[in-house]
């Protein structure tokens, strides 16, 4: 049983690879990743999905929903040039690949610098004995005396 399952899985994988290879070759042939690839990849796509469009009713209307690979325009961002390609099968995005995601700048790998929730244990830790200065909301002259910065300065007279 287990062997049969493994063999059929391997065969299925090979089929998927082959279909992917084919569609990839078509994209390369046509040069343009957009509309021209649409018809070419549809045959490959049906191979991958095992006739999914047919099973979803088999109506000719399915032909009007988008299928193919589409490249977005290259966008200049703070992190360098970014361009993505999507693979669409019967109107649903099945894959997103980055065509351009790099720049000489080392920040290219860090596309998002957005702030995310973080546990208190996960931030860079520091004890007041290790730091040389303290950043905080502005303290008044009075509050300074009892502040951590006040203690640090007192230690460094």
């Amino acid at each position: 049983m287990r062997i049969r399952a493994a063999v059929s899985a391997a065969l299925a994988s090979a089929g998927i690879l082959l279909a992917g290879w084919q569609s990839g070759a078509h994209v390369a042939d046509t040069g343009s990743a957009a509309a021209a690839a649409s018809t070419a990849t549809s045959s490959g796509a049906s191979g991958i999905s095992g006739g999914a469009p047919g099973s979803s009713g088999g109506s000719p209307g399915a032909a009007t929903t988008a299928t193919g690979t589409f490249a977005g325009s290259a966008v200049q961002t703070r992190f360098g040039t970014v361009q993505v390609q999507i693979t669409v099968n019967a109107g649903a995005i099945t894959d997103v690949t980055a065509l351009q995601l790099t720049d000489d700048d080392r920040k290219s790998v860090q596309i998002s610098n957005r702030a995310a929730p973080l546990l208190r244990d996960e931030v860079i830790k520091a004890q007041s004995a290790q730091v040389q200065t303290i950043s905080g909301a502005t303290v008044t002259s009075d509050a300074y005396l009892s502040s951590l910065q006040g203690a640090l300065d007192a230690a460094n007279l």
Binding site: S128, A129, L145, G150, A151, L152, D153, A154, A155, L157
Partner: peptide, 13 residues
């Protein structure tokens, strides 16, 4: 120099 308010903490670092 301002007076130390935290004698205990003055020996930091």
């Amino acid at each position: 120099p301002l007076p130390a308010a935290h004698p205990a903490q003055s020996a930091t670092n």
